[in-house]
Computed example of a mutant assay.
Amino acid sequence: MADMQKALRARILGAGIVPRVIWGRKVPQGTALPYLQLFAVSDPRPGHLKGYNGGRTTRVQADCKAESYAEAKAMSDALVPLLAAPATVDGIKFGHTKAEGPQDLGEDTAAGFVHRMSLDLLVWHSSV
């Protein structure tokens, strides 16, 4: 799945809708807002009697974090149509990504309030 993660990150950064994309739960200390934090929630590998299928759908949680509600919402609003269009990036073919949400999950942190718009993305992908 690392190749899909790298390609998805490159795709989002290439569109210019966010300045930083971070995979995983650990954000480097001092990371400036805004940024997009991605987590692979589930990655089933569909198969049949002869082995696994080439393509699969990975559920990715996308948290758009920003200093203002408007900025976090704009990031999530831009992410949905970007990923809805099929594309091929770094040898990974992406199909139509379905989005659920966003949910407003802003939170108080040690550094102050952080606005967070959270999307569940069903990312279809395969190697080219």
Score class of each variant (00 low, 15 high):
57 T>I: 15
35 Y>A: 05
50 K>W: 11
89 V>R: 06
10 A>H: 04
66 A>D: 02
106 G>K: 01
81 P>M: 04
93 K>R: 05
52 Y>Q: 15
93 K>G: 00
77 D>S: 13
15 A>C: 03
11 R>P: 01
84 A>N: 09
25 R>D: 10
36 L>E: 00
23 W>T: 13
105 L>P: 00
34 P>G: 08
9 R>Y: 03
45 R>K: 06
56 R>L: 12
89 V>Y: 02
86 P>F: 03
8 L>K: 02
98 K>T: 14
25 R>S: 11
38 L>P: 04
35 Y>T: 08
74 A>D: 15
83 L>V: 08
104 D>P: 01
67 E>F: 06
63 D>S: 15
83 L>P: 00
45 R>F: 01
103 Q>F: 09
59 R>Q: 15
24 G>C: 10
41 V>F: 07
75 M>N: 06
32 A>F: 03
52 Y>G: 11
36 L>C: 05
100 E>A: 13
99 A>R: 02
38 L>M: 12
49 L>M: 03
102 P>H: 05
54 G>A: 15
100 E>K: 07
16 G>S: 09
69 Y>W: 14
88 T>D: 02
98 K>D: 12
40 A>D: 03
41 V>C: 07
80 V>G: 01
68 S>R: 13
36 L>W: 00
27 V>S: 09
102 P>E: 04
55 G>Y: 11
90 D>K: 05
57 T>K: 07
36 L>K: 00
84 A>F: 12
60 V>W: 00
81 P>A: 01
73 K>R: 12
82 L>G: 04
88 T>H: 00
60 V>T: 08
75 M>D: 07
65 K>I: 10
39 F>N: 12
101 G>V: 07
12 I>N: 00
16 G>K: 10
87 A>R: 10
16 G>M: 09
63 D>F: 02
16 G>D: 08
31 T>H: 07
29 Q>G: 12
34 P>C: 09
8 L>Q: 01
54 G>S: 13
105 L>N: 13
42 S>Y: 08
30 G>W: 07
85 A>C: 03
93 K>L: 02
102 P>V: 00
62 A>L: 02
84 A>W: 07
65 K>P: 00
85 A>Y: 04
91 G>W: 13
86 P>H: 06
27 V>R: 14
77 D>V: 11
22 I>M: 07
102 P>N: 06
22 I>H: 08
6 K>M: 06
33 L>I: 13
68 S>M: 09
26 K>V: 12
46 P>G: 11
70 A>Y: 10
62 A>G: 08
11 R>Y: 07
96 H>A: 05
54 G>T: 12
67 E>N: 09
42 S>F: 04
18 V>T: 11
45 R>E: 07
93 K>W: 00
68 S>P: 05
56 R>F: 07
38 L>W: 10
30 G>E: 05
51 G>E: 03
32 A>C: 04
58 T>D: 08
17 I>E: 00
11 R>H: 13
43 D>Q: 10
44 P>N: 14
80 V>L: 02
33 L>G: 11
84 A>S: 13
101 G>D: 13
91 G>P: 11
65 K>W: 02
18 V>Y: 01
50 K>Y: 13
39 F>H: 14
83 L>I: 10
